[in-house]
Design a protein around this nucleic acid. Sequence first.
DNA 1: ATCGCCTCCTGCGCGC
DNA 2: TGCGCGCAGGAGGCGA
Length: 271
Amino acid sequence: MPELPEVETSRRGIEPHLLNKTISKITIRQHKLRWPIPKNLPTLATGQKIREVCRRAKYIYLKLDNGNIIIHLGMSGSLRICTSKTPAEKHDHIDIIMSNKKILRLRDPRKFGCVLWQASDINEHKLIKPLGPEPLENLFDTDYLHKNAKNRKCSIKAFIMNSHIVVGVGNIYASEALFRAGINPKRQAGKISRVRIKKLVDAIKLTLKSAIKEGGTTLRDFTGISGQPGYFAQKLLVYGRDGEKCTVCNQTIKQFSQQARSTFYCPNCQH
DNA sequence: ATCGCCTCCTGCGCGC
DNA sequence: TGCGCGCAGGAGGCGA
């Protein structure tokens, strides 16, 4: 479900409720997520103060004095801030309860998400270490992407969705960015000119920034921490719009399957 | 090294 | 109204 803008929206939503608060209790109702929630997580984190609420790629992590709680939302995860008055529902797997009684609650029907512990430097965690640069940071630029695309035989869409290359670009924003850059999603990554790679870098940054500004994209179930939808869905140019007219050229938007994921594009605008 | 396929899991919308 | 099917925003792990 959530791509970078939705994760960043969640991070910004929870941050003010958690910063400098002490964890008083952790209730785990379901250990079995993508990886098991560590049994000793409550022991490790209880009594600790949350110093920072950060994001790296699509991971959110709570920085404590003795380590980090790492949270990934997978396809269907969402975070809420609530109190004990809100009863936990079926897929509410873990509550992180603050000393001020506020609760950070993770719901994840499909259980593709995870909650993990990393005692030392977060960047040394085995899931974080191999990740490419953040798309909105300066390290991610035309030189970087052009150099890395060299000799790559995979499609440009698979390439920008590869987290070793750049993080945070998921299935929605890959289609959106390629449309804005005028690049056909099937094109081989290694065969795209530098000028067009620059367009793509700009398009990725622009797309993600606008989506963050709108509070993310709500297709069916993504909501911010108070349950509010993200408004970027209304600004999607191609994703989910197959059969509709291209906003630029009025031709029909097409959908096809790539790496078993839906891709949307305008055959007339994208080459 | 790189690529593409499979997999984990639940819910929803569609067609019959 | 009910059932079965296909599909869904991620991404690690595997075999080729």
